[in-house]
Design a protein around this nucleic acid. Structure first.
Length: 743
DNA sequence: TTAGGGTTAG
């Protein structure tokens, strides 16, 4: 192996694409792998069939793939040492010794000492002291006796682990160079490990080279390479490499693992045709009943929106594992079939074929959260404790998330405080809860506590934190501090969503629309829909037509199918009396075949859902519901409430269809208006105990009049009312809303 | 022996 590897390839490293859309256009062969003749003509034909699908993928037909988020950094729990390698203190001391003893180690007679230190590398890695291990390696390499002597295989193995955890390019080079220079004898395992550390550190050019040059490959080598290509966004090449393996002499190696991986890739990319093709591959190879492969197929079909086919694969499984159940349940939920998802979940419980695990809890809690099903969550919470998941990090975090979303922060806090171990996601759920609840100061306090406990924040933490600052008055400057601290103290590049939060802070609270506009323009990357969306919302709030128009146009370019943006722009025009321009927007929507969906709200009472539309009288309790609302509206008059409709209803009559599809107060339609959210709240008030809180869900953005009215209703009735609309949660309590009247 | 793979909480 050529030790000059790095000098030849260093210039083109890290070519990870950052374009918002990754277009597969490279049809060229990436690396040459000798092709073996295949004995069975049927097999060959089959392979050609597969190849043609992938080739069509990589031809220039402008296949546009949605970019997938980069894989999350794993949040590994802090493990207590279980192996008998001496105490952690010893290992730390050894690391400390490196510094102090380095001066004494210049001479040959310290060889024995060096060997001991060499063994310390192993311990340091086992105790998670990766940096120290690599420093020790450096020391031994340059100043100890190992400049020309190779380590034992197991030492390199541990050094590889350290490099992978630390993602350190420098150390990868150093370790590999040492192996090459000292003439280390690589076996298949170590070749794969070396490949892995290059891949994991994003050194894909070197990884390519290594992969081509390694004397032999096994399934693991192919798998590492393919996963590396996927991770660096080179999806076309990942498929291509899979094909090469398929056609190479290694093809007999293609087992369940590699198929699992490549199917998952198609799932992530939502490439249904390729997924189907792979499905037929595994059917042919007789691997389709393998549990992991089936799970991957179920997941793939779910992600591609083919829930029936997913169910078909699931039904064919001889033994349904808990992962399979979880995948199919989550798949139903993913495709918007929350109720069916729950039915499958009940089926799982009744079938007794698999015991539910913490993921099952997590998934169904998430479904209940969508359904605002607090009664079910109470039962699930109890069942979770009964079944010994009270201390489980995944299940508990899902509970915190639920309570944090629906405004039960004392519950969330109780769960959180009772957790024996917390990870960053648990903390984020807590901070996010305070954010949702409009409790910015407490969000910041929780963050500070987290830092004190030496938990390392990630980008989601800052998302919650910045959101908390934009959601509470007077925290704008804190928001700026956190935004700056991200890169200065926490070594993190703010992403588009963080910029969007800052836009909300600037434009939303402080009304600095122009500043926000230039902030977006000067962002170090192409502005995203989130950023323009934040600006557009701010323009609606402050009634700024000019900037709003610009933001809306950008949004229509990026995502012309998103109806919500058109509605906000319509509202901006209507509010400022520019009805001609509003009509133009409606025309554009018409031309593009976009229909404003009928707004509806719903509320769950005693585990039964109840849905309402505008002026809806289909509910059996309609008379009582309308009576209650009328009674409250009369009461509100005494609080100085004036129906804003009176002012503008005349001029709007010709414009707006006869439902309240604009979801805002500018809507005409007579003096008595019963928006769906008011009806849902009305039913909640008459059918629950006087102190009970209400949870309402709706897909459209709440109108300012309903917002005002529900705030007053919460004040008069003393209820806590939580409503999730298309943009956020609103917690009405004591005449106030957690959104601080900005949404 | 050791790696590499599947569902998943923000």
């Amino acid at each position: 192996m050529d030790s000059n590897l790095y000098t030849t390839t260093a210039t083109i490293q890290h070519s990870i694409p950052t374009a918002s859309y990754f277009s597969i256009s490279t049809g060229k062969k990436i690396r040459s792998v000798s092709r073996l003749d295949h004995s069975s003509p049927g097999e060959l034909k089959f392979q050609k069939q597969v190849s043609s699908v992938f080739n069509s993928l990589s031809s220039e037909n402008d296949v546009q793939l949605k970019p997938r988020p980069r894989p999350k950094p794993s949040c590994r729990p802090r493990l207590a040492p279980v192996l008998d390698y001496g105490s952690e203190e010893d290992a730390i001391k050894a690391a400390a010794d490196v510094a102090t003893s380095s001066s004494q180690l210049h001479h040959h007679h310290h060889h024995h000492h060096s060997s001991i230190l060499c063994a310390q590398i192993e311990k340091l890695v086992l105790f998670g002291k990766y940096r120290e291990a690599l420093e020790l390696f450096d020391f031994l390499r340059f100043r100890g006796n190992f400049s020309h002597v190779a380590f034992r295989s197991v030492i390199y193995d541990k050094l590889v682990s350290a490099c992978v955890v630390l993602r350190s390019i420098h150390d990868v080079k150093s370790v590999f160079q040492h192996m090459v220079e000292t003439g280390f004898e690589f076996d298949q395992y170590m070749w794969n490990r070396v490949l892995l550390m290059h891949v994991k550190c994003g050194m894909m050019v070197d990884a390519d080279f290594l992969f081509d040059e390694m004397p032999r490959r096994n399934e693991s080598s192919w798998n590492i390479m393919i996963s590396g290509l996927v991770d660096s966004g080179r999806y076309a090449e990942a498929f291509h490499t899979f094909l090469l393996m398929w056609e190479s002499e290694d093809s007999y190696e293609a087992g369940t693992r590699i198929f699992t991986h490549i199917i998952c890739t198609t799932a992530a990319l939502e490439l249904l045709p390729s997924g189907r093709q792979l499905h037929s591959c595994v059917l042919k190879l007789g691997l389709s009943q393998h549990a992991h492969v089936s799970n991957a197929l179920i997941d793939m079909y779910c992600k591609c929106g083919c829930i029936e086919e997913a169910w078909w694969v699931f039904a064919e499984m001889p033994e349904k594992t808990v992962v399979a159940w979880n995948t199919i349940i989550y798949g139903y939920a993913l495709n918007g079939h929350s109720e069916e998802a729950l039915e499958v979940y009940y089926e799982m419980r009744d079938s007794g074929t698999a015991k539910m695990d913490h993921f099952t809890y997590s998934i169904i809690l998430r479904i209940f959260s969508r359904l605002a099903s607090s009664e079910s969550v109470r039962q699930t919470h109890a069942s979770l404790i009964r079944n010994g998941f009270a201390a489980d990090i995944v299940a508990s975090t899902s509970l915190i998330d639920f309570y944090g979303k629906w405004g039960r922060m004392n519950y969330a806090r109780n769960v959180f405080d009772g957790m024996p171990y917390k990870n960053i996601i648990s903390w984020n759920a807590l901070i996010g809860g305070y954010r949702n609840h409009g409790r910015g100061k407490e969000a910041i306090q929780a963050f500070e506590q987290m830092i004190l406990e030496r938990m390392v924040p990630n980008h989601v933490t800052f998302l919650s934190l910045l959101g908390a600052c934009s959601g509470s008055a007077g925290l704008g400057s804190s928001g700026w501090e956190f935004f700056r601290a991200m890169s200065r103290q926490h070594n993190m590049k703010p992403r588009a969503m963080h910029y969007a939060c800052m836009v909300e802070i600037m434009a939303g609270r402080d009304g600095l629309l122009d500043e926000a506009y230039y902030f977006i323009k000067n962002a170090p990357f192409k502005p995203t829909a989130n950023m323009w969306g934040a600006l557009l919302t701010a323009c609606r709030f402050h009634g700024n037509v000019e900037v709003g128009k610009i933001a809306a146009e950008k949004l229509f370019e990026i995502a012309p199918w998103k109806i919500g943006d058109y509605i906000v722009l319509l509202n901006i025009y209507i509010n400022s009396g520019r009805l001609d321009e509003a009509n133009k927007v409606l025309e554009v929507m018409n031309r593009r075949g976009l229909k404003i969906p009928r707004p509806c709200s719903w509320i769950e009472i005693k585990r039964e859902p109840h849905m309402f539309e505008f002026n809806d009288r289909s509910h059996p309790e309609s008379d009582r519901v309308y009576g209650e609302i009328d009674r409250l509206m009369r009461l509100l008059g005494k609080f100085g409430y004036v129906n804003p409709l009176e002012k503008i209803k005349q001029k709007l009559k010709p414009l707006v269809p006869d439902n309240d599809s604009l979801g805002d107060e500018e809507k005409g339609g007579g003096s008595r208006r019963y928006h769906s959210e008011k009806l849902a709240v009305g039913l909640g008030l008459i059918s629950t105990s006087k102190s009970g809180s209400l949870q309402v869900v709706q897909r459209h953005r709440m109108c300012t009049d309903c917002h005002k009215v529900i705030k007053l209703i919460a004040l008069i009735t003393g209820r806590v009312i939580t409503l999730r609309d298309s943009s956020r949660f609103h917690h009405f309590q004591d005449g106030d809303c957690s959104c601080g009247d900005y949404w």
